[in-house]
Amino acid sequence: MSAELTVTRTARLANWNVAIIAITVLVLIVAAATVDSFGTSRNFGFLVLDLLPIALVALPMTLVIVTGEIDLSVASSLGLSSAVMGYLWNANQPIETIIPLCLLLGAVLGAVNGFFVTFLGLPSLAVTIGTLALYRGLAFVVLGDSAVADFPALYTDWVTGTIGGTPIPNVLIVIVVLAVVFGVVLHATPVGRAVFAVGASEQAARFAGLRPGRLKFWLYVASGLVAGLAGVLWTLRYSSARADNGAGLELAVVAAVLLGGVSIFGGRGALPGVIAGVVLLGALQNALRLSDVSNEALNVVTGVLLIVSVLAPNLARSVLQRRRT
């Protein structure tokens, strides 16, 4: 839109980022004070493990959504990665070859999405709904409805374990490292500037000499790669490879990203907000579950939060505008 809006838009974005972080901290404090055993180090470990897949997949998803696209196939990529991991483990392959292969598989699945979206110019929503079904279907073809267990204890223990006597889970390292990488790329490199530029106006970005197609292609590859990694970690966490692992996770990931203040239309968003969104979603679900609220009923909270996260800034803006005129 017009340039004069840019200042208020940035201000609004900053406001939402601060707001979502504040809300998250508030929820954490209230939960720790009111819900028994929420604040224990044991529960902290569970909370981080529950957050793990959403947190990882949300990172590249943020960049994809900022460019104005979407990737709904991530949970199916996660499931296919898990199924292939189980299949290869059944075939007596060493885990040291399986894990890189699963990561590679994830990258290839992402590249397929990227190919359809950028080279064929198809709408990403339709493409990734298609690959959502395709990848999940392939996962079932690979593994059927059986489960593969007995992964080496060395790896499963690391995923569920904590850093030396501290209550900090090992997997938190993975989350922090990747979050820093994606955060730096998005907010402190030319690639990140290109992501925002493409999301704000693809045509303008092209005229400015950027290559939106190539950028999006690699973002899809990154999204698939991280989903593959999330599949490996998911499998190791439960020591169970199943074709339906992570089913439906894409909705939670998109919800967390939008909750974090990223615009579904692209061009706007920030990674700290997204991380707050992930933590808020995870903490709320964890606290409510400890309070014996059923899992499915929690969905109401997720859904309302998602809508409110977009609705509230819109309403605030229209109220402000009315006051100004």
Binding site: L298, G303, L306, L315
Partner: peptide, 19 residues
């Protein structure tokens, strides 16, 4: 509410099911 349909109906997918 000026909220994109994808966001609204993703949200109500959860809400209606939760209800």
């Amino acid at each position: 509410g000026n909220v994109p349909a994808l966001v609204v109906t993703l949200g109500t997918l959860y809400v209606f099911r939760g209800i």
